[in-house]
């Protein structure tokens, strides 16, 4: 190669090395920025109202299923709604009575038993997926178990939700009345705080049978449990206010829930994130709607 060619190549090499050196610092600069979008709470300046939920689920599950409902209420009322939890069913009733919360998602049994104690008023009750105000209590067992009906429960272990719930209170009596199996005929009976905990214990095999609310039972089916028996109850878990709740708040809550269009495509997406019990809409409710529960309560109280 002639000298001119060598000079050309050397020149080219110098340029390449120069470019490499020049771009090196830029190449290894790993500085990055991505815009952070903090939560924008348009409602931050609205007056706050607290919404109570009985401890039928764990606090995490309650926030998971009820926080979107708070967002909905905040958006559709003049208030910013925040969840306020309680460690017991009755704790929620007390919060309501004290005015710590404006409204609460109650258990039907809790309402019936504490209505007069805390001057409670039922305003709405949720509908099930068939549009009826009927609740189902489900007996669940592991798929691998040979249990086919509640008549097979003798000698088995059973786990139930809180004694403060309708399920916890009524099911032993219901089993006895339906099958003749008495309390002492079970190998063991245990009460736990939450419906989901019942499902988990049956799934893990620690108990043979459990009784839960319908939405929990449907989730449990997907995880390997089966439903062996269903008990319809002619009243769903109500939304309850107390005498402390002002009428404006009450009316706005009622309007917001009754105006919810569950069939609307626009709403379907956010309803998926709601606690299933509340995702099929509501109807106005009165105290008389809970007479069937009172009847059950009466039968329980008549046990000597």
């Amino acid at each position: 190669m002639k000298k001119s060619g060598q000079f050309y190549l050397i020149g080219l090499l110098i340029i390449v090395v120069g470019i490499m050196w020049g771009t090196y610092q830029q190449a290894i600069d790993i500085t990055t920025f991505s815009q952070f979008k903090p939560e924008k709470k348009a409602s931050l300046h609205k007056p706050v109202r607290y919404f109570g939920v009985v401890s039928r689920y764990t606090p995490r599950e309650i926030f998971q299923g009820y926080q979107p409902i708070m967002d909905y209420l905040t958006k559709n009322t003049s208030y910013q709604f925040e969840l306020k939890l309680s460690s017991s069913y009755e704790g929620t009733a007390i919060q309501l009575a004290r005015g710590d919360i404006s409204v609460a998602a109650f258990g039907s049994f809790l309402y019936v038993t504490h209505k007069d104690d805390y001057d409670l008023e039922v305003i709405l009750q949720p509908l099930n997926k068939d549009g009826e105000s009927i609740n189902h209590l489900m007996f669940i067992a592991h798929e691998s178990k040979s249990i086919q009906s509640i008549r097979d429960l003798e000698g088995l272990s059973i786990v139930l939700p809180s004694k403060e719930s309708l399920t916890g209170q009524w099911m032993p009596l219901y089993i006895e009345q339906t099958t003749g199996i008495k309390f002492n005929d079970f190998n063991s009976i245990e009460y736990v705080s939450h419906h989901t905990t019942v499902a988990e214990l049956v799934l893990s095999g620690e108990f043979d049978v459990g009784v839960v609310k319908e939405p929990v039972a449907e989730m449990a089916i997907q995880k390997g449990l089966k439903i062996i028996h269903s008990v319809p109850v002619s009243a769903t878990s109500p939304l309850v206010i107390s005498a402390n709740t002002d009428s404006i708040t009450k009316d706005e809550i009622i309007d917001a829930f009754l105006s919810l269009k569950i069939q609307s495509n626009e709403n379907k997406d956010f309803l998926k994130n709601w606690d299933e019990e509340f995702s099929y809409g509501f109807k106005r409710s009165t105290d008389a709607d809970y007479d069937p529960i009172r009847k059950i309560l009466k039968s329980i109280n008549n046990i000597p």
């Binding site: 190669m1 050309y8 080219l12």
Partner: peptide
């Protein structure tokens, strides 16, 4: 500019190669 075909080939290919590989 080099006058031989060989030099030109090397330089043209070299330049193209460096350009393409750099990209």
């Amino acid at each position: 500019m080099p006058t031989t075909l060989k030099s030109r080939l090397i330089i043209v290919f070299g330049t193209l190669l460096i350009g393409v590989l750099s990209l």
